[in-house]
């Protein structure tokens, strides 16, 4: 099978999305007023520590002022990475074509 691995990846991704949708429906149905589902695990750990009575002794030097700006910077991070991957793979593919 030439594309066996691609098929496995596609099947797993679809299964992952399906599990998310089912889980999300269950969570939304039992959601208390004001609760926000699907928060970050990093934040959950921080909350757990703060519940133990710990006060962080330092704060981030700079915080994204809003969720939009945070997602902008995350998208920028992904875009930089995707650009590099695409550029290198494209170069390799192009050089292979011209040399063969």
């Amino acid at each position: 099978m030439k594309h066996g691995l691609e098929i496995i990846v596609a099947v797993v991704l679809i299964a992952f999305a399906a599990i998310f949708l089912i889980q999300n429906a269950a969570i939304q149905a039992n959601l208390a007023e004001g609760d926000e589902p699907w928060g970050g695990a990093d934040g959950a750990a921080a909350n757990y520590i703060e519940e133990m009575g710990y006060e962080p002794w330092a704060n981030p030097l700079w915080e994204p002022p809003s969720g939009e700006i945070e997602s902008l910077l995350f998208a920028l991070q992904a875009a930089i990475g995707a650009f590099v991957i695409g550029y290198v793979f494209g170069t390799w593919r192009g050089s292979k074509r011209t040399s063969s």
């Binding site: 992904a78 930089i80 590099v84």
Partner: peptide, 27 residues
């Protein structure tokens, strides 16, 4: 070096994606 760039870029892309998981939180 291009391969090194790909490996680094991969860390960039994957660690920027926050994916929802079975426990109801994202990581």
């Amino acid at each position: 070096l291009p391969l090194l760039a790909v490996a680094g870029a991969f860390v960039f892309v994957l660690s920027s994606l926050k994916l929802p998981s079975v426990t109801g939180s994202c990581s």
